[in-house]
Amino acid sequence: MTRDIALGQFIPGQSVIHRMDARVKNLLLIAFIVLIFCSFNFVSLGIITGAVIAVILLSDISVKMYLKSLKVIIVIILITSILNIFYGSGDPIVQFGIFKITLSGIYRAIFVTVRIICLILISSCLTFTTSPTDLTDAIERLMKPLKILHIKVHEIAMMMTIALRFVPTLLEETDKIMAAQKARGADMESGGMIKKIKAMTPVLIPLFVSAFRRAYELAVAMECRCYQGGDGRTRMKVLKIKKLDVACILVTVLVLAGVILCNIFFAAKI
């Protein structure tokens, strides 16, 4: 069951997006997110949606995987869009009691839905195409300026790397322990809320025990290799900005310009 979670999974490949520098990908992701929330009319929203779809197609990962990542948040999308329908101002189209549906409400709902979907798709694209190590490497580099404020950037990045590295391991472990307890007749599906939580103890205790064991083993293994934090550490893979990255930045700048221009020249819908 835990295998079905598509969000945050790395799928190796050789596409344009895969080959981009992780730092550039991170920065462009931020740019895209800002743009998604700064498109105030249908034309600019269309441009950014088109750009997101183009990125997805370029990533060479099956659309099914993206749909799977959307599946997780479908409830959130539904709730927010329904709430937004009733939130508009202006003349009501349909009205029952205190609830009224207005044209601006419908617009709002469409905007919110498209924005959330774009947001999830483009962030999934980052995690699908970037290995966790590259990702944290990039974050470490991008956060380097914070060192002036005495923030331990390397330690934060290392913790993130370790956390990300152990997500699949712990999921797999959960699967195994659950299977083992099910084989001993544990009933985890039926019963009310409290019964279900109680039924998780035989899974959680072994999971915690093994997580602590792993943490201990990892700490010993790191010390054995003389790990002592970030100072003076060199990298095996040095991140490099290539022509491809420059091209991608230029394209994003174009999209940015397009969205800004459309925002100026067309009337805002919300």
């Binding site: 472990e173 195994k176 322990i177 299977a179 083992a180 307890q181 099910k182 084989a183 001993r184 007749g185 009933d187 103890t201 035989p202 205790i205 072994p206 025990v209 093994s210």
Partner: peptide
């Protein structure tokens, strides 16, 4: 679920399931 009682299964490294 009842099949589990008829076909008992001991997994690899079963000591990690003790709780």
């Amino acid at each position: 679920r009842k099949i589990c009682f008829k076909v008992g299964m001991v997994f690899q490294y079963p000591e990690y399931q003790l709780f």
